[in-house]
Simulated scan of single mutants.
Amino acid sequence: MMDYNIRGENIEVTPAIREYVEKKIGKLERYFNETPNATVHVNLKVYSDRSAKVEVTIPMKNLVLRAEERNADMYAGIDLIVDKLERQIRKHKTKVNRKFREKGEPQDYFAIAMNETAAAEVEEDTDELAIVRTKQFDLKPMDSEEAVLQMNLLGHNFFIYTDAESNSTNIVYKRKDGKYGLIETN
């Protein structure tokens, strides 16, 4: 059973919005063999320019579905989110089912039977996940500022390094808003 945790930032989550979200996201259940026991996290945010951002995260056992969309119309954003999640499921359904079978799961995660239109879109491209290049390099100890400088010098949008203080492997990356992010590992 899917439970819903719908949170609004700068907007009140009305019963109409809640019902619309549950109705639309509930359509995803048809892609599963068994309705997953998951809490659907929905974050609705309205900005000062009246645009809305919709984020949906569905954490399940061994799998997380996630999408976000920014749109002038919140209801249109919710529709687009559902479309994105459906595309993710259709695109990766066969690969996910195969991985679970290899791990010894008794049944497929996603339902195999779909309408013909969806089935045509699902044709698996085996080259899609093929690794076409491998690089090896030594991780130099440095701080996050130096890592950002190195990343920019290389013209990349991420950089992996060893943190000089913690000796852990970290990643700095350039965000869509032009600022920088840091991923710290344990």
Rank of each mutant, 00 (worst) to 15 (best):
V148L: 07
V40Q: 00
I89A: 03
E69C: 12
T14V: 09
D163R: 01
R7N: 14
D138Q: 13
K23R: 15
V64L: 07
A72G: 14
V82F: 10
L129A: 15
D125W: 01
E121L: 13
K45S: 09
V21M: 09
K99C: 00
E22G: 05
I25Q: 03
I89E: 00
N43I: 15
K93E: 00
D49Q: 05
V21A: 11
E55C: 07
E102G: 02
I81K: 02
E68N: 13
D127E: 12
D125R: 08
M1F: 10
K93G: 01
L63W: 00
T117N: 14
R90N: 12
P15A: 12
N167M: 10
M1A: 15
D79R: 11
A38Y: 06
D138V: 15
E116Q: 15
N71Y: 10
E105K: 07
S48F: 08
T134S: 10
I11A: 09
E102N: 06
K61G: 03
V46N: 04
L65R: 01
G181C: 09
F32N: 05
H41I: 13
M151L: 04
A16Y: 10
I160Y: 04
V64Q: 05
N37C: 07
S144M: 10
K27W: 00
K99W: 10
V132C: 10
A72E: 15
P106D: 06
K176H: 10
K27M: 06
K140C: 13
E69S: 07
Y109I: 02
Y31H: 04
S168C: 03
F110A: 03
D3F: 08
I89S: 00
E19I: 01
A16Q: 11
N170K: 11
E116F: 15
K84G: 07
E165W: 00
V82D: 12
D163C: 05
Y173F: 11
V132W: 00
I78S: 03
E68M: 09
K45G: 06
R90P: 03
I11Y: 02
A119S: 11
D73H: 11
K135F: 15
E165D: 08
E184Y: 02
I58V: 10
R98L: 05
Y4D: 05
V82N: 13
E116Y: 15
D138W: 02
A120P: 01
E34W: 13
Q107A: 11
D79I: 02
Y31Q: 05
D138H: 12
E86A: 09
P59D: 08
D143H: 11
E29V: 03
I78H: 06
H41R: 08
E12D: 14
A52D: 02
R133G: 10
A130M: 14
T94D: 03
L85H: 05
E68V: 04
A111N: 02
D108R: 04
G178S: 14
F158A: 02
V21G: 07
V148H: 06
R133C: 08
T162L: 12
S144W: 14
P106M: 01
E69I: 15
H156Q: 07
Y4G: 09
D83Y: 15
E22A: 04
N43F: 12
N186R: 07
K176S: 14
A130Q: 12
M74R: 05
Y20C: 03
L149C: 09
E19G: 08
S51W: 07
Y20H: 08
I112D: 06
I81D: 01
G178Q: 15
L153Y: 08
M74A: 12
